[in-house]
Design a protein around this nucleic acid. Sequence first.
RNA 1: GGCGCCGUAGCUCAAUUGGUUAGAGCACCGGACUGUCGAUCCGGAGGUUGCGGGUUCGAUUCCCGUCGGCGUCGCCA
Length: 589
Amino acid sequence: MLRTHTCGQLGEGQIGETVTLCGWVDTYRDHGGGLFVDLRDRYGLTQVVFNPPDTPAEVIEASKTLRAEFVLQVTGTVAARPEGMANAKMATGKIELRVTGYELLNKSLTPPVSPSGKEEVPGEDLRLKHRYLDLRRPEMQKVMMQRASIIKGMRDYFAERDFIDIETPVLGRSTPEGARDYLVPSRVHRGAFYALPQSPQLYKQILMVAGYDRYVQVARCFRDEDLRADRQPEFTQLDVEMSFVDQDDLLALIDGLVAKLAKEELGIDVPTPLPRMTYDEAMERFGHDAPDLRFGLELIDCTDLASEAEFRVFSAVAKSGGRVRGINAKQGTKHFSRRGIDGLTKYVAEYGARGLAWFRVEDDGKLNSTIAKNFTPELLEKFGERMDAEPGDLLLFVADQYEVTCKALYALRSKIGREMELYDPKTMNFSWIVEFPMFDYDDEAKCWHAMHHPFTAPLADHLEMLETDPGKCRAQAYDLVINGSEAGGGTIRIHDAEIQKKVFTLLGIDEKTATERFGFLLDALQYGAPPHGGIALGIDRWVMLFAKLDNIRDCIAFPKTQKASDLMTEAPGEVDTMQLKELHIKLDE
RNA sequence: GGCGCCGUAGCUCAAUUGGUUAGAGCACCGGACUGUCGAUCCGGAGGUUGCGGGUUCGAUUCCCGUCGGCGUCGCCA
């Protein structure tokens, strides 16, 4: 070992000891007669002092060439700092290392991204290009360590409960369900391609058939879709599958994990079982299947009242099967000026809303707006009652098809909640959304799609609806929601060939297609498949939420940019024509 | 693919309605200094204003295109 201690380790207990530290020059302070260096490693900072009489003159002389991010091995004596010189801001601030000699292990160019807190954090493109410097920043190291701790906490939790960690292939076959696949051309099989897994879904079900009744894996997954602040093309799931369990067993298992990690990582007690809400209720009350439950501002239906209004925008929508729903921004008139409301109107337009109807609640309790003349006073009063209107409130309505009111009002609710600071961003909220629809209808293709995946089991008492009313059929599917983010999701799977056949029929997948796409799973299910189900947790998002970060890149060591490139390695890159030839690939142009 | 924001010194930013030689802090280089801790003081160097085109007597500023970063819609079973 080149060192005896780390830079975060020394304290008054080691005073008088001769020690050797290794680390990077965080800052240096040259005083002519001597100099001070704050030496950094991932454990902390220690002040090392090159001063007479402890440090020989020639060592002091040499130390004057030290610069930021040089790598040093320093040996010296741990000493208490002189009277009044302790630094309360440093964990090691009561002591210092009086250097007797040092070895320059390496030099550094002037860093474009400064790992010390001395310069402001540069733009993200530079941070990604010089990721080795960015990752050297204590803030980033803290997140990486927290990520490791969360993953270890998960692994321990499942290991303690007899789960077996089994790896599944990264090179698999493409199944046209779901997201766009990343493809890998086969050299051996001309014209054939592997696909990188969107999740180990089919393998883990096969493992259940194989009798490994408790499976867990930290699995890398790939989806070739456009990126977002909380979405990367490759991401990590904590993948779990169990046999001989029902939905309650699965949820209780994850409840325990949430409680454990919330306690260990954040020091908070999360009561279990976590609250559960059905999908239908979430859509009705919040307009979204992953509502942020840290604040209210719920959606309130006024379709019945709207149908009575002279106001054509309301009545026409109400009478043609649409919905008129609103939210009450409590005391929002102070926060949103007329101009601010115009801004909100533009905002909901991005989500397909054709307009935003609004009322201010005046001091006398009456609703006032440019559109108020289209309503009788009696009707306005009814709206006020329904919306729980009080003086100072701002009522906002969207009239449109149900889906549009959901999207627009969900977005509006999130924006207003954030801007009016209706919740403390530090608080954590965990909950389950359950009973997702089995299918949604594709208007363009005029067919049903599996909402989760085609092996999802319907609720036991919804079996008949597979034939009578697929749109109402609900699934044994559940999502874990943390602070309005989908942090995990899973289902109980179909293990009955008859039900599976019905689902395929409904999805328009004939026997031939089913065999082509996932014949191996259907085969396996015929050889004694146990009842089984599972869940996958988005580890990157967990870390993002636990670390209070606002984007997922900051909790991934080497993330991709919005255009899915790696600025450090410059991946993806072009390849040699020879490589393409071997893969039987010709490019256009 | 659509919409929006951004791009000026190594880094973070500034620059009047479009007007002289594009500035500041930090970093860097040289010097001074025996206790600092974002050390301080003195001096210096550092620019294809992302790139290409246009408007103009004159463009960092206005317009078009393009590249890149971010956010978002579509997309993401």
